[in-house]
Write a protein that binds this DNA or RNA. Structure first.
Length: 154
DNA sequence: GCCAACGTTGGC
DNA sequence: GCCAACGTTGGC
């Protein structure tokens, strides 16, 4: 059982979209970064905890809790010539990109990036690091606990 | 809209 | 295999 932070641009797919989604679940398609892919492929397991993070928006931050609801499987958009996620080097025999499914646990108050930065306990979070661009990052159990219990009061 | 940081590409 | 150029991310 691990914990993760997964970024999504709310203009593309927000926590409210997840709330409204069929089965409150979504296929995390479109990741085209090897490090993020490897996390999904090699480490993410059913039931892992996920912070759903809003990025590239007026108030970036954690907007809800989710969990991994399906382990990694090939991303169909890599084979689709019409998709913005198409990868000409990927074949069905040797897919290059995979993704997990994620389902809602609960929407929470928005714990903003600015608020995360205020806490020494969270100083090592990857998402707070300068120049961080990775869309999926591991979260330490202590960080998960601090955010869900102390900040969200769950 | 700016720009720092970082990943990827491709020439050599 | 190096590394400059380029493209993208994402906070501000």
């Amino acid at each position: 059982m691990r914990y993760w932070l997964m970024k999504s641009e709310p203009e593309e797919f927000s926590i409210d979209d997840l709330v409204a989604a069929p089965k409150q679940s979504t296929a995390w398609i479109g990741v085209r970064n090897y490090q993020a892919r490897n996390f999904m492929r090699d480490q993410m397991q059913l039931g892992d905890g996920v912070f759903f993070y809003h990025s590239s928006c007026p108030e970036p931050g954690i907007a809800g809790l989710a969990e991994v609801s399906a382990p990694a499987y090939p991303d169909a958009t890599q084979f689709d010539k019409k998709s913005p996620y198409h990868d000409p080097k990927a074949t069905r025999e040797t897919p290059r990109w995979v993704h997990v499914d994620v389902k809602l646990v609960r929407k929470t108050r928005l714990v903003s990036l600015a608020e995360l930065r205020e806490h020494q306990e969270l100083a090592d979070m990857r998402v707070l690091a300068r120049g961080n661009r990775l869309s999926i990052t591991p979260i330490e159990p202590g960080e998960w606990k601090f955010i869900t219990q102390k900040l969200m009061k769950l």
